[in-house]
Amino acid sequence: MNVPRFPSATLGLDPGTASRRNDDEAARAADPRALIDLPTREARRGSARQWSLLRSRALRVGVPLALIVLWQLASSLHVVAPETLPPPTVIIDALKELIADGELQSAIGVSLVRAATGLAIGGGIGLFAGLFAGLWRVGEEIVDAPLQMLRTIPFIALIPLFITWFGIGEGAKVAVILAATIFPMYLNTYAGVRGVDPKLLEAAHVFGLSSRQIALRIILPTALPSILVGVRYSSAVALLALVVAEQINAQNGIGYILVNANQNQRADIIIAGILVYAALGIATDLIMRALEHVALPWRPRFELA
């Protein structure tokens, strides 16, 4: 039976071994039935990964650039009136103006503190509520029904109530973000805890693990991917709620810049502020992806193409 022989470099071998290897290769070349060395599976996977990475980076960069070019062309050809949608060059000039004044840098810092505060409080409440309802039946009976009812209420509809309770200061703004981030965190945590494979729990009981050990060693690690999805979703919702919250008599922040631009009919600054919100959302998503990669190194990555 022919045994496949895999090629290797002859560098570093003694002359006798290299000569025998060359003779073997010549014999296989003369024999039409000799086996042909094919690329290994790892080599094919490596080239496929490189092509996938190159394609992903090209699409991520190329598509936004193509949209910006089309936007500029539409403005240059007067397909869209500059007063309605200023071209990208004007938006860049507006951003330079805000950066030169130092207004944008301070506004971003204030807005991020608001979003982070609301996310920390609301996400924390949602996390503990999800664990309480998922781990204990009495917790589900106490927490799940009220939260399922409250999550159907848009957080925007609660703004008048928050203004009545907290006034028009920072309290109302943080409360809006808090109310928006509780429910995504709760739902993902609850689903992750309740989605643990029953066979794992049965095996834990067979090995004599206590309820605390089961929760810490099986349920929480298994539910961690879903919990991190909740953190990622809640962080995105926090930025959406920030846009709304900063319309409540804001004296600083990105929303304050947009309000002033609206009063002065500065469409370029309004669009520049919207793009800053979008950039913050992309940065937040990248941070959450990195957090998932660090916290879940064991999770396999699967792609159809």
Score class of each variant (00 low, 15 high):
Q105V: 15
P88E: 00
A191M: 13
V231P: 03
A129P: 02
P88Y: 00
L187H: 05
G109T: 04
V259T: 10
G134C: 02
A180L: 04
S75G: 11
E141N: 09
P86N: 01
S106M: 06
Q105M: 10
L224E: 03
P82Y: 09
Q265V: 11
L209A: 10
D285P: 06
T89C: 03
K96R: 13
R212N: 09
I274E: 03
R232P: 11
P82M: 09
S234Y: 05
I254V: 12
K96V: 10
D101M: 07
L77R: 13
D285L: 12
R33V: 14
L228M: 10
M149I: 13
A115W: 00
S226A: 07
Q50W: 10
A9T: 14
R60V: 11
S106N: 15
F6G: 07
V79H: 04
Q72R: 04
G139P: 05
I168K: 09
R232Y: 14
I121R: 00
I248Y: 02
E202D: 15
R194S: 13
L77V: 12
V259A: 13
P32I: 01
P184I: 02
E83N: 12
L147A: 08
S19V: 14
V243L: 10
V174S: 06
T164L: 15
F162D: 07
K173V: 02
S210D: 08
G126Y: 11
P221I: 07
V193A: 03
P64E: 00
E103C: 12
R194Q: 09
E141G: 10
P198C: 06
L258V: 07
G123W: 02
R41V: 12
V110L: 14
R28H: 08
Q247D: 09
H293L: 11
E170I: 07
I254M: 07
